[in-house]
């Protein structure tokens, strides 16, 4: 593994610099996706008829290959990080919206009735009852969205080296240094697993009321 962390200068970043860049390009879209999907999901819960078309639309967006998405967006945002991040944010909706909808819907009706009977207003009920109970489902969605976002950033390499760690893949080919590709794949995978583990930890911290026994999914 000689030169594993010895990166060519055209990458313009140190290894850790690339890791930071990669995480920023991957996580900001998921965060944006989460902020976007909360109101969308609430809309789907309140008005049931909204859900199927929203689901259909997000699925179609998801079916558009990331590369095509990037290329089309170059016209508007140039070969930039924004161009990479917008599709990633949209992709995360496909996972997050159903996760939140199912999570909020899974709150037992008697719990809601009890909250209502105790005089919780709609807003308070959402933030203090529905959302906390939906946390496990939301985190489960976030895990999938985060991991695939981290993995997808690398495709950004194809539009003028906007793929952070993915850019090493290009150099691996032109300089005939397969080790760079191995490095990229492994680093991205490890980042994904670490992000996943971090989210599991967050869930454990946010939901002390959940039984600890059994599989963490």
């Amino acid at each position: 593994m000689n030169g594993f962390f010895d990166l060519p200068s055209d990458l313009q970043h140190s290894y850790l610099g690339l890791v930071g860049l990669h995480l920023r390009e991957a996580l900001l879209p998921v965060l944006a996706g989460l902020l976007l999907s909360l109101p969308i999901a609430q809309l789907c819960v309140r008005f049931r008829w909204v859900y199927p078309p929203v689901l259909g639309l997000t699925t179609v967006l998801y079916a558009i290959p990331s590369l095509a998405f990037f290329v089309v967006l170059i016209d508007y945002f140039g070969q930039s990080e924004t161009t990479v991040m917008i599709p990633l944010a949209l992709y995360s909706l496909v996972v997050l919206v159903p996760a939140i909808v199912d999570g909020v819907r899974s709150v037992p009706p008697e719990t809601l009735a009890a909250a209502q009977a105790m005089g919780f207003g709609a807003v308070r009920r959402y933030f203090q009852v529905q959302l906390p109970i939906a946390v496990p489902a939301i985190i489960a969605g976030l895990r999938v969205a985060t991991v695939s976002s981290i993995s997808l950033v690398s495709v950004g390499m194809l539009i003028g080296n906007q793929g952070a760690l993915g850019n090493m893949l290009y150099d691996a080919q032109i300089y005939h240094r397969p080790v760079l590709a191995v490095n990229a794949v492994l680093t991205i995978a490890v980042l994904g697993l670490l992000a996943d583990a971090a989210l599991v930890l967050v869930r454990l911290l946010l939901t002390p009321w959940m039984p600890r026994k059994g599989a963490a999914r």
């Binding site: 590709a181 697993l193 996943d196």
Partner: peptide, 15 residues
């Protein structure tokens, strides 16, 4: 499954 998801498809392809 998480490990499988974490492996970047594009990176794996190039490798």
């Amino acid at each position: 499954a998480t490990a499988g998801r974490a492996l970047p498809s594009f990176g794996l392809l190039v490798l």
